[in-house]
């Protein structure tokens, strides 16, 4: 599949999600009433949009989806897509405009490791499109992402996810004195924000992330010149089903080293 086609499909799905949400007049209220139903409906609408986008183009693919598992679309899969219809679904159901749809592409149809992903597209609900092609760079709205943003910051801005699990690294409290903390609620989109320099870093110490959550965003961050490791500083690898991932993503080696050393102090 061509990169342009993947990007088009990502945009189509994002638009479908957007109109689905727009079709519900008061989506603040939906949350408090039946959050699970709403999530499922939104996700299903996105899954259907992916299937039609592929079939309309005469494409056949194996799709590994966070929501409904593994399926074959069409007759003879030529490639595999790792699909997360909505990353940041709590935000989506709460009316918080920070979530995205994420698709990673590999020519392999049997197994997908992080290294096998050759293209990725992430479309956020604000209308931004991030995409990347292996060895060809990462792009935001068609423009190559390079270097870091202009301007200075008093401290690096880092999205931190460390809640809800028994173990909080002791060094985290010390580390939080040195950074401006955010936690925006969509790991994949946070990673894109690191890729384009909006955020300086992301860290998730919970060991709850799975391969399919971050396969697209990992390629985008990597192609933007970023560094992605687990909290011990080791490169993240494994296949799409791998679970229990912790992560640190930055574009600055110095910041990365500081986070790794504080978390392992």
């Amino acid at each position: 599949m061509e990169l342009e086609t993947l990007v088009e499909i990502g945009i189509e799905i994002r638009n479908e999600i957007s109109s689905f949400i727009g079709g519900n007049k008061d989506y603040g209220e939906m949350v408090t009433q039946r959050p699970k139903d709403i999530t499922r409906k939104m996700d299903m609408a996105a899954e259907k949009a992916l299937d039609s986008a592929l079939l309309e183009r005469g494409l056949s693919a194996r799709v590994i989806s966070e929501e409904i598992g593994d399926r074959i679309v069409g007759d003879k899969p030529e490639f595999m897509l790792v699909f997360d219809p909505i990353d940041g679904s709590t935000n989506a159901t709460c009316g918080i405009p920070f979530f995205c749809t994420s698709i990673a592409y590999t020519e392999k149809t049997d197994i997908a490791t992080f290294d096998d992903i050759t293209m990725a597209v992430i479309c956020d609900i604000q209308g931004n499109v991030y995409h990347a092609k292996k060895s060809k760079g990462a792009f935001l709205n068609g423009k190559r992402i390079s270097g870091s943003k202009q301007g200075t910051r008093p401290k690096p801005v880092v999205s931190v996810y460390s809640y809800g699990v028994p173990h909080v690294p002791p060094g985290l409290i010390e580390l939080e004195k040195k950074i401006i903390v955010r936690a925006l609620g969509s790991i994949a989109l946070d990673m894109c924000f690191v890729a384009d320099g909006t955020l300086d870093g992301i860290m998730d110490t919970r060991k709850l992330v799975s391969g399919y959550d971050i396969m697209a965003s990992a390629l985008i961050l990597d192609e933007a010149g970023g560094i992605l490791t687990d909290i011990s500083g080791k490169k993240i690898s494994g296949n799409v089903q791998v679970t229990g991932i912790s992560l640190i993503g930055t574009k600055q080696k110095e910041l990365h080293d500081i986070i790794v050393s504080k978390l392992n102090a």
Binding site: S162, G164, H167, V168, I173, V181, R182, L184
Partner: peptide, 17 residues
């Protein structure tokens, strides 16, 4: 620094700024 130390106790923590 009470909040990060107590993070494990709650379902979800967000910081939007």
């Amino acid at each position: 620094y009470a909040v990060p130390a107590n993070n494990h106790r709650v379902r979800r923590v967000r910081i939007f700024g």
